[in-house]
């Protein structure tokens, strides 16, 4: 079976990053790469200080992409993200100064601290992949990925993203503490933020573009896998604890991420286990539980659902 184009290069980057620079963050890295390959965005939800920013930085530099960063506060304005026009006196006209969103990879730190107006401007840009300022529309660069983080613990002075907006993020995942050995190593070495800024690009830009195209066009989703995905979606919709199950957009997202997963496994078709492996990244944040079951762990419910639906083997 021939491998899809550029898959070895992609896996080499992952391998290099996770073994050299970002130990213990394989899963988050992998999901980020999948999001990038499918043109989606990723929401990292974890307490501060686990290396979210470091990871984003390393990711961008290793892929040879431009990097922008926005630190959200409650007084952050939409124009602080998109950019604004400034009057140039010498030329006697307004010049548009591009905001941090005009980068390939944009890290939005603590996205829930921004006020809803700013959040919605950001989400609109994420969805449309373009920005309209003062009547002029600017196209965002390709590839484009937003890597937002939020702190799930601290709730004071935050504006939690509503479910409808959570749906815009293809993937939500945590980072988790690194394994013991790895963490001890990090403690010995100290922060590697400076090092990371100097990671040379491991990949050509064209390779990345080709990989993205391959994932979109060459990876095949068969009937059996579609049936499996539909069975999962249907199960979330009819589950007694769940008020609103997966939307069609959620289903599309699941297919897209599964395609990226299959691609990274070197296959040009999706296997059911690809789908099952990405369910936990794609689904939980799209499920809305009934008010009386708010406290139930979404992961558990999803696990129960997955257990009920057998993988189609034949």
């Amino acid at each position: 079976m021939p491998k899809p184009a550029k898959v070895d290069e992609m896996n080499a980057v992952l391998e290099e990053l996770s073994s050299q620079h970002l130990k213990g963050k394989v899963r988050a890295l992998r999901l980020s790469l999948m999001a990038l390959l499918t043109g989606g965005h990723i929401l990292l939800e974890d307490i501060p200080g686990l290396g979210k920013t470091t990871m984003a930085l390393a990711f961008a530099s290793a892929l040879g992409l431009s990097f922008g960063r926005v630190q959200c506060t409650s007084d952050l304005l939409p124009s602080d993200i998109t950019g604004l026009s400034v009057f140039d006196r010498t030329e006697g006209r307004f010049n548009f100064i591009k905001g941090p969103i005009f980068n390939n990879i944009v890290l939005i730190d603590e996205v829930n601290r921004a006020m809803p107006k700013t959040q919605s401007a950001l989400l609109e840009a994420m969805e449309e992949r373009r920005v309209t300022v003062e009547g002029v529309t600017y196209q965002l660069p390709e590839p484009f990925m937003v890597l937002a983080t939020q702190n799930p613990v601290e709730q004071v002075g935050t504006y939690p993203l509503p479910e409808s907006q959570m749906d815009r993020f293809l993937i939500r995942t945590g980072i988790g503490y690194p394994p013991e050995e790895v963490e001890k190593g990090i403690l010995r070495q100290g922060s590697i933020r400076n090092e990371i800024l100097h990671i040379p690009p491991l990949l050509q830009h064209e390779d990345l573009v080709e990989a993205i195209r391959t994932v979109r066009e060459q990876v095949y989703v068969g009937e059996k896998v579609t049936d499996y995905i539909y069975a999962i979606i249907k199960a979330t919709r009819t589950h007694p604890l769940v008020q609103t199950g997966l939307s069609t957009r959620g289903g599309i997202g699941m297919v897209d991420v599964a395609k990226a997963a299959a691609y990274l496994h070197g296959r040009d078709f999706v296997a059911p286990e690809d789908v099952r492996d990405v369910v936990h990244a794609v689904c939980p944040h799209r499920l809305i539980f009934r008010p009386e079951h708010e406290g139930v762990d979404k992961e558990h419910v999803l696990n129960a659902i997955l257990k009920e639906i057998p993988l189609p083997l034949t």
Partner: peptide, 29 residues
């Protein structure tokens, strides 16, 4: 409830790997 590719990778069985790559290439396509 394990997928075929998953099983092949976990057992690291060369025969099973070859089998699932041919088999999956047809069945899932």
């Amino acid at each position: 409830g394990e997928g075929l590719f998953e099983l092949a990778a976990r057992l690291d069985d060369p025969h099973l790997k070859r089998f699932v790559s041919i088999y999956g290439g047809a069945v899932y396509c």
